[in-house]
Design a binder for these strands. Structure first.
Length: 492
RNA sequence: CGGGGUGUAGCGUAGCCCGGUUAUCGCGCCACGUUUGGGACGUGGAGGCCGCAGGUUCGAAUCCUGCCACCCCGACCA
């Protein structure tokens, strides 16, 4: 393994691919388009899961689990949704293998074992879930139904990249049923808010909340809300979506309830999800040419301690001091790892923990033993300082929030300085090809214009920001009237 | 799924045009010793059906055919 990472300036996508593998987060597998998430990467995902799960529970949701395989007839019930996913579905057609009579030692699909009805590997679970909800919902008293599931899904992708787009990925999908349109809409917005709060407070990734245009909307939804983040290469990444499904699925699966007046009504629905794609967002928001940079909230180890010693006596002495430090830090709920491997020298350990994004490093050697100090190094700023043992715990505790905040603010500065307002299509093209980032511009609201802009510039409308101001203007492309700006960008 | 590129030890590679002893080099790995405040050094050692399957040939990493995987660029998508 070569020591240095390709730099971002040299080749951004190569930098990303190398970083994911070298930081030991994930690797490609023997299955086309599918990744193995390695323990270090999975530990980060588990931290995301834990916090999201807590937030879902706090907003009244419960977890459940629905099947991986969906009968084709159920899948096709909601037409637009089925159409939207049809091209990327894996399908189970048989249920048995047998020894191949023509190829000893090999197996073949038993032609006698064809399924009467094919099963679709879920690309999303609306179909099986709404088919199930039909049996759970009779009265307004059964509502709202607020369910989430943590699961894997499969979408047969042509081009895959670790975490950003893989054929199988992990996610959570919330599926809720409500009495009224207003309540379902509110749920959609609440969950989009949960995602935005999570991204900003926990992942230190600033996001823009908005609504998707018709062409970017989830198949089967009336409205798709989203959070959009900006990566360091100036491309946007959709980090989460929350869909207002209206009564589309209730009608497709005949899910009615008796309201307070005794009348039958279709329920109102939402669905919302974030996936392991968030790992990609995390990497591309904060990391640098030395490797991963993790916000303390997501770091499997928030602090790593590296001993520097010549003799066994020194090592023992350091170990006993380190044991004290670890006890104090753990009492403050700070996760800390003592890298006491005798097989590696300090420099190698420094490099490895930098590559893996550990927020804080404590180095302690003979000089520190004499002076009652340690060397404290920040991963995000690469700055070092000598800190007295007496003040270490408080200092580290303070740095946890400081680093978290600094990462957010740094990303926010970058993001805000990469939202460019433009009023002519010439400017638009210049910004897209040069500076990159989001472009705030007027749009006439038609799919035709959106398509043409995409054709010419590769940029798409990421969202209509929720906080977009009313403003009279002219569409950047067609010159027709427009009353608010939308955000364009090239996107992942 | 279209266009281009690449597959040689765990990783990165030379050799391939122009077929011919034991397949090159670096990193990593193992053993021993010296080392340890930013990716240590020395000595010795292990590790390859040259992506897979066919074919041409006395002989294939090298030539031909098919397949597979990965990377880049498009179309599609979270």
């Amino acid at each position: 393994m070569s020591k240095k990472l390709t730099s971002r300036a040299e080749d951004y996508s190569k930098w990303y691919n190398e970083l994911v593998v070298k930081a030991d987060m994930a690797e490609n597998s023997a299955v086309r388009g599918c990744m193995v998430i390695k323990p270090y990467g999975y530990a980060i995902w588990e931290k995301m899961q834990a916090e999201l799960d807590r937030m879902f529970k706090e907003t009244g949701h419960q977890n459940a689990y629905f099947p991986l395989l969906i009968p084709k007839s159920l899948f096709e019930a909601e037409e637009k949704n089925a159409e939207g996913f049809a091209k990327e579905c894996a399908v189970v057609t048989h249920y048995r293998l047998q020894n191949d009579p023509d190829n000893p030692g090999k197996l073949r699909v038993d032609p006698e074992a064809k399924l009467e009805e094919e099963l679709v590997v879920r690309p999303t679970s609306e179909a099986i879930i709404w088919n199930t909800y039909k049996g759970w919902i009779q009265s307004y008293r059964d509502l709202p139904l607020l369910i989430n599931q943590w699961a894997n899904v499969v979408r047969w992708e042509m081009r895959t990249r670790l975490f950003l787009r893989t054929s199988e990925f992990l996610w959570q999908e919330g599926h809720t049923a409500h009495e009224t349109k207003a309540e379902a809409l509110k749920e959609t917005q609440t969950m989009n808010n949960v995602y935005a709060t999570f991204a900003e407070n926990f992942m230190a990734i600033p996001v823009i909340q908005g609504v998707k245009t018709e062409s970017e909307r989830f198949a089967g939804a009336i409205d798709t809300y989203c959070i959009e983040a900006l990566m360091q290469d100036g491309k946007a990444l959709q980090a989460g979506t929350s869909h207002f499904l209206g009564q589309n699925f209730a009608k497709a699966f005949d899910v009615k309830f008796t309201n307070k007046e005794g009348k039958q009504e279709y329920v109102w629905a939402t669905s919302w999800g974030v996936s392991t794609r968030l790992m990609g967002a995390l990497i591309m928001t904060h990391s640098d040419d030395l490797g991963l940079v993790l916000p303390p909230n997501l770091a499997p180890n928030q602090v790593v301690i590296v001993p520097i010693y010549k003799t066994d006596e020194q090592f023992e002495e350091i170990t006993s001091v380190v044991n004290g430090i670890m006890k104090d830090l753990r009492a403050k709920h700070i996760t800390v790892k003592f890298d006491n491997r005798t097989t590696h020298r300090p420099g190698a350990k420094f490099a490895q923990h930098e590559l893996q994004g550990v927020p804080l490093r404590i180095a302690i050697g003979p000089k520190d033993l004499e002076n009652g100090t340690v060397e404290l190094a920040r991963r995000d700023t690469l700055t070092k300082e000598v800190v007295s043992l007496n003040t270490l715990t408080d200092k580290v505790e303070g740095l946890m929030t400081e680093i978290q905040d600094d990462l957010y603010n740094k990303a926010l500065d970058y993001r805000d300085s990469h939202i460019t307002e433009v009023d002519t299509f010439e400017e638009f093209k210049a910004v897209i090809d040069g500076k990159g980032g989001f472009i705030s511009a007027h749009w006439d609201g038609t799919i035709e214009t959106e398509d043409k802009i995409k054709e010419v510039t590769k940029a798409t409308i990421r969202c209509i920001p929720l906080d977009a101001k009313e403003e009279n203007g002219k569409c950047i492309f067609s010159g027709s009237v427009s009353n608010r700006r939308v955000l364009f960008a090239k996107a992942y």
